[in-house]
Simulated scan of single mutants.
Amino acid sequence: MTQVTEPTRYGDGLAVVVVTYFPGDDLERFLDTLEKATVRDVRVVLADNDSTDDALDKAARRKNVQLLRIGKNLGYGGGANRGVAELDDSYGWVVVANPDLEWDPGSLDTLLDVAERWPRGGAFGPLIREPDGSVYPSARLLPSFGRGIGHAVFGKIWPANPWTRAYRQERAPEERTAGWLSGSCLLFRRAAFESTGGFDPRYFMYFEDVDLGDRIGRAGWQNVYAPSAAVTHIGGKATSRAPKKMLAAHHESAYRYLADRHRGPAWKPVLALIKAGLAIRLKIETRGG
Rank of each mutant, 00 (worst) to 15 (best):
G277S: 04
A123W: 02
S182C: 05
A248S: 09
Y167W: 15
L282A: 05
K63A: 14
L46Q: 15
Y136I: 11
V44S: 00
G155V: 03
T196S: 08
E102P: 00
K63L: 10
D88P: 15
L186P: 11
R168S: 08
V94C: 07
P143T: 01
A47F: 01
T164V: 04
V4S: 13
E28P: 09
G277R: 00
D57V: 07
D88V: 05
V270K: 06
L27D: 09
D214C: 12
F193T: 04
L108W: 00
A80R: 00
K58A: 15
K244C: 10
S228F: 05
Y255E: 11
Y167L: 14
L34H: 02
D113Y: 05
H233Q: 10
E208T: 13
L68T: 13
K268N: 09
R29V: 06
G197K: 04
K244E: 13
G264M: 13
R147A: 13
L258I: 08
R241P: 06
G220R: 13
V44F: 00
D100Q: 04
G121F: 07
A59G: 10
A115Q: 01
S182G: 15
Y206S: 03
I70A: 03
A160G: 10
S240T: 02
D12E: 12
R120H: 14
E35D: 15
L101C: 01
G92I: 09
A85P: 13
L278G: 14
D54T: 14
D113M: 05
D260C: 08
A226D: 13
G77A: 06
F124D: 05
A259V: 06
L141V: 13
A152L: 10
A85E: 14
I70N: 10
R287H: 08
A266H: 13
D12R: 07
V135T: 09
R82T: 06
R69I: 12
L142K: 11
L187H: 02
D53L: 10
Y21L: 04
V210N: 01
D113T: 08
G71K: 07
R129E: 06
Y76L: 07
R218S: 07
A178K: 02
T8R: 12
N73M: 02
V135I: 15
R140G: 14
T52G: 11
A172E: 13
F188S: 09
G213C: 10
K237Y: 09
G106L: 00
A254F: 09
L68Q: 12
G24R: 15
G92C: 10
G106V: 00
R43E: 07
R165Q: 15
V44P: 01
R189S: 12
L14M: 01
P126K: 04
D132V: 02
A266E: 15
G288V: 03
G217L: 14
E35C: 04
L101G: 06
S228D: 11
L108S: 01
P7M: 02
L46N: 14
W93L: 09
F30C: 11
A279G: 12
E28T: 10
D53V: 07
K156N: 02
R120G: 09
D32Q: 05
G183V: 01
L31H: 03
L258P: 00
T8A: 12
A266N: 09
R82K: 15
L141Y: 05
P201R: 05
V96M: 03
D89V: 05
V44D: 00
V65F: 01
R241E: 08
S138K: 00
